[in-house]
Design a protein around this nucleic acid. Sequence first.
DNA 1: TTCATTAATCGTATTATTGCAATAAACAAA
DNA 2: TTTGTTTATTGCAATAATACGATTAATGAA
Lengths: 110, 110
Amino acid sequence: MGLAKTEMFTDQQNKIALFAKVFGHPARVSILQHLFKIDSCVCGDLVNEIGLAQPTISQHLKELKHLGLIKGNVEGTSVCYCIDKENWIVMKTIMSEFLNQDITKTQDCC
Amino acid sequence: MGLAKTEMFTDQQNKIALFAKVFGHPARVSILQHLFKIDSCVCGDLVNEIGLAQPTISQHLKELKHLGLIKGNVEGTSVCYCIDKENWIVMKTIMSEFLNQDITKTQDCC
DNA sequence: TTCATTAATCGTATTATTGCAATAAACAAA
DNA sequence: TTTGTTTATTGCAATAATACGATTAATGAA
């Protein structure tokens, strides 16, 4: 049915899945890495940096912004994006808790 | 077009996206958390634990197995799954590098 | 062998995602 | 105001993902 049954999972599980989903496309990974690398803010030259069309990049930026991982500032005709540090840390906490589950306890397969 | 243009990104970026994508559904998050919690191995009672139909769970398990994050052992008529520790650590390294990019360097928005 | 149990696979309906051309919107400069 | 520049939005085509009924495959028990 193509529709994830979110209501049968915990808020935490859904939150992890939402963050993970936004990282689930290399273009968005690339955008974020670039925003980290260029530590001054970056405008739509992401379109040149990455090889995708302008509407495509704009759409990916929208998703990242919607989740709160980046924020954008209008500067004349262009828009300047950067990592939202506060929310990035919140996301990192949630994801790390999931990734760092204690593996030493777990026994090997039967 | 519904088709991610993976060829224009680095192997690392695609790898991050692939791992993230598999975490991008709460059912798979839930399966993994359960396999961590029940530190002895777990069979298809994941179907009871989570509320999805047997073919659906089987499909999610297949994706997790395909990425190497879990492994399955046949035990009579049932199959016992567990976390693949070695690959989990590899995944964790790749994801952590991405999540732990130095945020202190980054300036705020313009 | 026959029957029951469990899991995988197949087929298919439905929704989601991706990508971009075309267009609109916002703004600066002339 | 008009013109050019930049970004967002719209609309649409194509592929991917989700879910599950029906079926098959594999195994153990009777």
